[in-house]
């Protein structure tokens, strides 16, 4: 990734974090923790990895993105707004009556949302179907990217889909696990231990790539490696839930509660300086 790409992506991440805080404060409900942990992943995809065109959301040879962890809708909406799919002001309609920005992504309401998600565990199956449809059309070029939560891996259907992707050799499918180690009821290792996620996917026949999910350069390298894989590839991205807002980081309590006005003000102050963005 070029230096200018890196600078631009770091700026995009900072803007997305501010948007996530502002839209959740305006809505009064929603999921900040798992949105903030996935900012660099989503920014890298929309910023440098995926072929897509906000002026033509149904462009046939676009890459597809599936937000399987649909409750992290704010990070998707922030990424789509940064990319030009919707005006930034509209972000403040999140979760409100008649908004295109539903509590969980709705493909029938907002262009740029490929499939509707929200009930955990279904996105990887959707992505398998999308990848098979592209193959049937004789067009293996577009890639289907599917972002999963780590708690979500407790849904058995994820592993049904993992088997399917390997069985049908879906080399045009890339999964990303936002491995923030937390879920609503506590640390994933306490609630229902996931064991070694990388070993599990490897055992299911996937190419497994690990990276720091907040390092833009590591993410870019991981997506390049995934693109080159001849099998379905998973990027297991180690992340921090609530990343970027000091009082939200690594706390389960911020999974599904919106900041109040004072908390939002403090968060925005923390996010006002030079962007983070790793090396």
């Amino acid at each position: 990734m070029s230096h200018s790409d890196h600078v631009e992506l770091a700026r995009m991440c900072q803007a997305m974090r501010r948007d996530i805080v502002e839209m959740l404060a305006a809505s009064g409900s929603g999921h900040p923790g798992g949105s903030l942990s996935a900012v660099e992943i989503v920014a890298t995809l929309y910023g440098v990895v995926m072929r897509h065109d906000p002026s033509d959301p149904k462009m046939p040879d676009r890459d597809r993105f599936v937000l399987s962890k649909g409750h992290a809708a704010p990070v998707l909406y922030a990424g789509l707004a940064e990319s030009g799919y919707l005006p930034r002001e509209e972000l403040l309609t999140l979760r409100k009556l008649d908004s295109r920005l539903q509590g969980h992504p709705d493909m029938r309401k907002l262009p740029g949302v490929e499939v509707s998600t929200g009930s955990l565990g279904q996105g990887l199956s959707l992505a398998c179907g999308m990848a098979l449809a592209l193959r049937l059309d004789g067009d293996l070029d577009p890639t289907v990217y599917c972002l999963l939560g780590d708690g979500e891996l407790q849904e058995g259907q994820v592993w049904e889909a993992a088997m399917t992707a390997a069985h049908y050799k879906l080399s045009n499918l890339v999964a990303i696990v936002d491995l923030n180690g937390l879920q609503i009821d506590g640390p994933t290792c306490d609630v229902m231990d996931l064991g070694d996620v990388r070993e599990k996917f490897a055992a299911f026949g996937w190419t497994v790539i690990g990276c720091d999910g907040h390092s833009l350069s590591e993410l870019a390298a991981a997506f390049s490696a995934a693109d080159a894989a001849t099998r379905p590839a998973v990027i297991v991205a180690r992340t921090v839930k609530g990343r970027g807002v000091s009082f939200m980081e690594n706390l389960c309590g911020w999974h599904g509660r919106a900041p109040d006005a004072a908390e939002a003000a403090q968060a925005l102050e923390e996010l006002a300086g030079e962007p983070m963005g790793g090396e």
């Binding site: 499939v115 199956s125 959707l126 999308m130 990848a131 098979l132 449809a133 592209l134 259907q157 889909a161």
Partner: peptide, 9 residues
């Protein structure tokens, strides 16, 4: 859900 993905395609 795979069928849904195929239908979206």
């Amino acid at each position: 859900a795979m069928a849904a993905g195929l239908a979206s395609g």
